[in-house]
Write a protein that binds this DNA or RNA. Structure first.
Ligand SMILES: [Mn+2]
Ligand SMILES: [Mn+2]
Ligand SMILES: [Zn+2]
Ligand SMILES: [Zn+2]
Lengths: 157, 157
DNA sequence: GAGCTAATTGCAACAATGTTGCATTTAGCA
DNA sequence: TGCTAAATGCAACATTGTTGCAATTAGCTC
């Protein structure tokens, strides 16, 4: 559609990346999938499937919750999103296809969430596992505490 | 009751430890709490509140699910039990009041679960966090992979 | 641009999980 | 043995997650 072609920024770059991945993996780029991607991008905190439904409804858009569940399943399989287990919500992956297991730190005060990779940590974890007779393949890791802002507010400096 | 005094082993030692903690913390030792402790002790895998209800019902015992939720909440607050986030079930803590954050390894094949503490890992995690501007207080860590038995079955040796 | 078809979505019905307020029971104590 | 705060049961409800099948649509061909 010409209108769209003239304004490519109507869809953010972050979302565009995910769309690329959908296409190259042979999945269709549908309106619901784009909408969920947009919500995940805008969200400041992890959002549940029903949160997503509510947020979209506020924009006059409607998606059946089953659809949202299926879309999130797909996104998680493709690592475009992750489920944050300590709160049940979903976030958009901020690391692209960076190798290694994607970890989270969550501020228990403001809810800010930071995703990161730490290869050394992974190695150490795998080593501890072997010592206990396990061969681990995946490390789930979510730390909670205070972000620098919230820490400063409480303890000064 | 004399009967009980003569057969102290009627309640296992593991469970007895937890009962001690309940008492010293000023919580009552009730029949439902003992029953849930027993189920957790016997369980080979994490069990959901409704699992617990079903298991008890098989023994002709009935607990309202609300009660089970409240008991599990308490046990988790006292660290007598933990919720395993990657599967939603609860397990009895096997480390007593051992210092440090209690971590899990889960075999994705047979479901075996191993709880452990690794202080070095904690330190490293805290350090990584500081580098990213976080002051973490708690580390949630659940690794998945294969236990030595399942590994051997698949890859020999 | 119109038509085709497999992939995706919507819908309906249901299952599982989790929560709240209040009446009833009971553990622990005097 | 009774008292009372703590714990449980009950009822009603809210949220979250799942399944099968009919309707729609993205991406392709012509
Ligand atoms: Mn990621
Ligand atoms: Mn523990
Ligand atoms: Zn914060
Ligand atoms: Zn195993």
């Amino acid at each position: 559609m010409l209108h769209l072609a003239l304004r490519p920024c109507i869809i953010s770059l972050v979302v565009q990346d995910s769309i690329q991945i959908l296409q190259t993996q042979g999945y269709r780029v549908t309106k619901p999938r784009r909408q969920v991607l947009e919500v995940l991008k805008e969200a400041k905190e992890p959002v549940s499937p029903y949160d997503i439904q509510r947020l979209l409804r506020q924009q006059g858009k409607y998606l059946n919750h089953v659809t949202i569940y299926r879309i999130l399943d797909l996104f998680c399989r493709l690592n475009l999103a992750h489920k944050v287990l300590s709160n049940g919500g979903f976030v958009k992956c901020t690391l692209g296809s960076k190798e290694g297991c994607h970890r989270f730190m969550v501020c228990r005060c403001c809810g800010v969430l930071r995703e990161f990779v730490d290869e050394e940590l992974c190695k150490k974890e795998s080593k501890s596992a072997v010592n206990l007779g396990f061969h681990t393949e995946y490390h789930l890791s979510e730390s909670s505490g205070l972000c620098s802002d919230c820490y400063r507010k409480r303890f000064g400096e």
